[in-house]
């Protein structure tokens, strides 16, 4: 009986002592933190993808709370809804940013772009690209080793085994830009998603002269400038033998798509209702 009593008392005293010490330590080392940081973080998607340019959602929340002007800050994953919700917490206004989506700018499928060498190194695009231009005649195009797919945290990419190219699952893509950073060839670009997800882009980044580009890949942009001439909105510019469509100027008229002799300009999600239209369609603009 005595033993039990002594045990209870001594443990009780020890516990109380520890509690008192902890209390004072906690008081002494208390760090003041803006409670709004927690609130903002709560509203964020908690994906910690780094798409905003900060190491994680918490860091982004801190930056939002600190910043006077939050117009430069954007959470691409959460999109407009999240941004207005967080802005509301902070009592600020935010302009809705256009939703973006990753776009693979290479159409060098096995058929379009014959392999001329065989790569036999570690499965890494970065290693392959530091070794040489790639296993095809095009030294700008996709190496097909899937570093972008590995980088994607949102299950929004896969390698198409038939074409050897990565494919983006639009519904899953949150435009965090991880794949853009991962690609050593800068093939993937974040572009405006467009109304009804319709958009037009040049699916090539080859800067070789026309002949060489065409020889390496039948779907290459040969820099012929036909698209540039036909574009009524000055949205297309050809530089270094390569056309680029400015998505802010493009009005989706699709004239260039029909004009391109190598079908290098792609349009997606346009009617006739097919999920993805690869070939240009003979059809006037809406």
């Amino acid at each position: 009986m005595n033993v039990v009593l002594i045990t209870i008392i001594s443990l009780g005293v020890l516990g109380a002592l520890a509690a008192i010490i902890l209390y004072f330590v906690a008081q002494k080392f208390k760090v003041f933190e803006d409670p709004r940081i927690d609130q903002v973080e709560e509203a964020l998607p908690a994906a910690n993808c780094g798409g905003c340019g900060f190491p994680g959602c918490r860091a982004f929340a801190e930056a939002m709370v600190k910043a006077d002007d939050i117009s430069d800050l954007n959470c691409p994953v959460g999109g407009a809804d999240t941004m207005s919700a967080t802005a509301a917490i902070l009592g600020k206004e935010v302009a809705a940013a256009d939703p973006m989506v990753a776009v693979v700018r290479c159409n060098g499928t096995c058929e379009n772009r014959p392999r001329i060498t065989e790569y036999d190194g570690a499965t890494s695009c970065t290693i392959a690209s530091s070794l040489y231009g790639g296993d095809t005649g095009c030294s700008n195009g996709c190496l097909g080793l899937g570093e972008c797919v590995d980088a994607c945290d949102f299950n929004a990419m896969y390698m198409d085994e038939k074409t050897g190219l990565p494919v983006i699952i639009e519904d899953n893509c949150v435009s965090c830009g991880a794949c853009v950073t991962a690609c050593p060839k800068d093939i993937i670009e974040l572009r405006k998603k467009g109304p009804k997800s319709r958009r037009i882009f040049v699916s090539c980044i080859n800067t070789d002269k026309g002949g060489a580009a065409k020889k390496a890949c039948s779907a290459a942009c040969i820099g012929c400038k036909k698209c540039q001439k036909i574009c009524p909105f000055d949205a297309i510019e050809v530089e270094n033998n390569l056309a680029y469509i400015d998505y802010n100027k493009c009005k989706l008229c699709r004239k260039c798509v029909a004009e391109c002799p190598t079908n290098a300009i792609h349009m997606v999600n346009f009617p006739p209702p097919k999920p993805k239209v690869e070939k240009p369609v003979e059809e006037k603009a809406e």
Binding site: T117, E118, Y119, D120, G121, L131, Y132
Partner: peptide, 8 residues
Amino acid sequence: NRLTVSPS
């Protein structure tokens, strides 16, 4: 044959 290219 197609040439094999690999790092050293």
